[in-house]
């Protein structure tokens, strides 16, 4: 894992991606700090971060697009597979390198509240916890982007997928307001979601039988649940969608709350998508 981590981290700074990422993060932070904190004299750095969170939409795909796609295109994936390394250590090595790059601007951000506190009263606790949450949200989105990069050998496709996923998650909170809340509608949407999942399972396992079994079992359970307790389904789909919104979890931190559930949520996403990446790498050996 150490070898992969060192190589990956190095590769961000021998090319321009690492510098581009740092430059964009610091540029946006600089603009928002000068407008919100300096010009308008707000002492809250969390407010600044809240306003610039959409930056992740544009610049996280820059980092994640090449993670696995590049290896596949350059055939270095064959090297990784043939060396005595576990797939999990390849994934972790690459992921920690990504997180390290993300940590650099976040460490720079830590200077801002300290500087502000020299000129007035600043709630350092909320400021730093919001920086931490901002970092953690980025780390969760990096895990998602890395997984998407493992699905394709084209960096462009990886970037577009990653951008799409982050954008969807970004818009999810506002989209849920338009979802009909009735139990019947929820059931209908869940049926569609299960079918979509079955298609993805079919794609990942190449087994139509397995995917069909999964779909049938899931649909049956869903129907039984609906028949037994239809009231459970009221507004459930909207709740389900808002659970997918990585960005809305972050708002609690912005409001000055240390949201422990939010932390658990981000760690869950990270672990889940790292596992997916390992599966995806393993799957590639089978086809």
């Amino acid at each position: 894992m150490r070898a992969i981590y060192k190589r990956e981290l190095r590769s961000y700074f021998t090319g321009f991606t690492g510098y581009l990422f740092l430059a964009l993060m610091l540029l946006f932070a600089g603009i928002y700090v000068s407008i919100i904190n300096l010009t308008n004299a707000y002492p809250t750095f969390e407010f600044t971060l809240y306003n610039m969170d959409y930056v992740y939409l544009i610049i996280l795909p820059i980092l994640t697009m090449r993670v696995f796609a590049e290896d596949r295109r350059r055939h270095t994936s064959e090297l990784l597979y043939s060396m005595p390394l576990r797939l999990s250590s390849i994934v972790l090595g690459k992921y920690f390198a990504l997180v390290t790059v993300l940590a650099i601007p976040c460490i720079v951000f830590c200077c801002f509240p300290a500087i502000f506190s020299l000129y007035g009263t600043v709630n350092l606790m909320t400021s730093y916890s919001s920086i931490f949450a901002f970092f953690l949200m980025g780390a969760a989105l990096l895990a998602v982007g890395m997984f998407l990069s493992s699905l394709t050998e084209s960096q462009v496709v990886a970037a577009v997928l990653s951008f799409g996923a982050v954008l969807l998650s970004y818009l999810m909170a506002s989209l849920t307001a338009y979802i009909p809340a009735s139990a019947y509608h929820s059931l209908f949407y869940f049926v569609i979601v299960i079918l979509l999942c079955a298609v993805i399972i079919r794609f990942l396992t190449k087994s139509t039988f397995f995917a069909a079994c999964c779909a049938i079992v899931a649909e049956l359970l869903l129907t039984i649940l609906y028949i037994c307790k239809a009231s459970l389904f009221e507004g459930l789909f909207a709740k389900f969608l808002s659970a997918l919104s990585v960005f809305s979890r972050y708002e609690n931190f912005m409001a000055g709350l240390f949201d422990f559930a939010g932390l658990v949520y981000y760690f869950t996403i990270i672990v889940l998508f790292l596992l997916f990446s390992v599966f995806s790498l393993e799957r590639r050996r089978w086809c």
Binding site: R7, S11, T14, G15, R74, H75, T76, S77, E78, L79, S82, M83, P84, L85
Partner: peptide, 16 residues
């Protein structure tokens, strides 16, 4: 894997 060394058809090298 530690008992074999492999050179695939396209040498798997990091250009940078």
């Amino acid at each position: 894997k530690s008992r074999i060394g492999y050179l695939p058809e396209q040498p798997p090298l990091y250009d940078d």
